[in-house]
Design a protein around this nucleic acid. Structure first.
Lengths: 295, 295
DNA sequence: CCTTTGTATAGTTTATAACTATAGACTATA
DNA sequence: TATAGTCTATAGTTATAAACTATACAAAGG
């Protein structure tokens, strides 16, 4: 049984004749006759009584007709719906953020995305870069918001923005009041370090290594919020993402840029290199780009 | 879009691979790939992300899958249902009886048919032979129960039985008490004639003509029940169908067979010569044959 | 690095659905 | 009752599309 056979069948019932049905279907009449015969053979019973002047449905034909209409109607719907649903933002999107981005960006993005795509469902994960990468490769995640670099051929990255890392300190340390801060000055103060399991921690570490800084690390912590709280208590200074600075409205901590060689991290959307990006995924990435806190 | 494309599509989702799906569908893998590509072109978007080790549905694919399953499932059902519904006696049957048969046969037949085919709907018409014939030709009626002959090439007739016509009389006329009744004796008594619009009236008339009888007709009536009532009142005698005699339980009227040359009528099922007889129609005809009142 | 697994592509063959032409059956009108 | 007109079915052919084989190319795993 094939769909064009059902189309022919319905056309005959609607036109009341093989010939007229053939015209409507843009085929020759014999083609149509043969397809109906095939259909009748497959069903095992005739569908029409050919009476010359008119054709009449048999009992089997009568019972097939509404069903054929349903099938064809559904198929017609499906084609349209698939397009419109996608454009109307139906669908599911699975996204992930790394822990040093999530707190400042995730809430803003979710809010905006839910407003713009109320028909979509959004699954949000938080995990370290390598965890997100593995999920993306396994197709368990559609988009990961993380920082560069990602050295994996299976991952496609789209850079969204460059985020400066700011010196964070309380007034207790004089670095907070200097007009200009140079890289070399950072090792003059106790430093609150983020664990290298985070790419941010790793990036700060390698930045300092490149600049020949030997930091005076007084604390290693595995959460950025702990770093923040330590700074606020005056235990030391650190390099933190600008997004954290922007979202910090307490006023206890002073954030300053490094003048000469600014530490920074590149924020990117990571997707599977070989999967097609869905409409929602593209839209989501643009929302992250525009909602990401920056001055 | 064609059904085998949807079958391939579903097979891929279930096996997780083009190759395995091809095996299941008993086609070569390239054939299947090409059909999926065609389907994707028609929909305008890819359905799968081919990741090498595994294939993953795209958002469009995810939304197509349940619909494809519905379509294929429905189609599978339809094939089965068409067969079983017919065999389970679903359907509609439009039947007709002529007025000189209907009163004695129709009730019995309807009762039996309804019992045997509770899933069927039965439309019953009553009309003169020519009316039934016309409806059958127009495919407005499936089966007509009437008497032969029917001279119409478009009508197929199946003889069911030969019904004797009996002499009906009250004791008032001595014909009722004779041991043997001969044709020639009929014109000795007043005769209640049925109108020739009925084939029965016509048949009696032509029977008498052939036997060189000149009936002493005292009454022409257009309903068989009127004939019956006239006889019961002793107004005359008549030739009536055996079915009437059997159903007459009053005992007022004596029914006798004609010994030498028995008048009779052939009861037949008339159907369209070129239409296929439905299962229900065949069953109905057999029920008429077996339920028709006879000694 | 090589083998294995998997999909896509190219080229060919087969199968099927299209076509043309015409037969055969019926309707309607002269 | 002829006869033209209107159907569907059949026969034979062509064209299309779906199948196949062989192979290229990419990725994963030992």
């Amino acid at each position: 049984m094939e769909l064009h056979q059902l189309e022919y069948f319905v056309a005959i019932t609607e036109t009341g004749s093989f010939s007229r049905a053939a015209q409507r279907c843009n085929v020759a009449q014999p083609s149509l006759s043969q397809q109906i015969i095939k259909l009748e053979h497959e069903i095992g019973q005739p569908l029409f009584d050919r009476l010359g002047r008119k054709v009449v449905l048999t009992e089997v034909g009568k019972r097939l007709l509404p069903r054929a209409n349903v099938i064809l109607g559904e198929l017609q719907e499906i084609k349209g719906e698939l397009q419109t649903e996608i454009q109307a933002g139906y669908g599911n999107l699975r996204v992930g953020f790394i822990p040093t981005i999530a707190p400042f960006v995730l809430p803003l993005v979710i809010r905006r995305f839910s407003q713009e795509f109320p028909n979509a469902t959004l699954e949000v994960h938080e995990g370290l870069t390598e965890e997100l990468v593995q999920k993306i490769i396994d197709a368990d995640l559609d988009v990961g918001i993380t920082s560069l670099p990602i050295n994996n051929k299976k991952i496609h990255t789209e850079e969204l923005l460059v985020e400066p890392l700011l010196v964070a300190s309380t007034q207790k340390f004089e670095i907070a009041s200097r007009a200009v801060i140079q890289v070399k000055e950072l090792d003059d103060f106790p430093f609150i370090a983020l664990s290298e399991v985070h790419c941010l921690g790793e990036q700060v570490q390698s930045f300092c290594y490149q600049q020949d800084l030997e930091l005076n690390i007084v604390c290693h912590t595995s959460q950025l919020v702990t770093v923040h709280n330590c700074i606020a208590l005056g235990l030391g200074v650190s390099l933190v993402p600008q997004a954290l600075a922007i979202s910090d409205t307490s006023g206890d901590i002073i954030y300053r840029t490094v003048s000469d060689i600014a530490p920074k991290r590149k924020i990117a959307a990571a997707t599977h290199a070989r999967r097609n990006q869905s409409f929602l995924a593209c839209q989501f990435i643009e929302i992250v780009r525009s909602e990401y806190p920056s001055n």
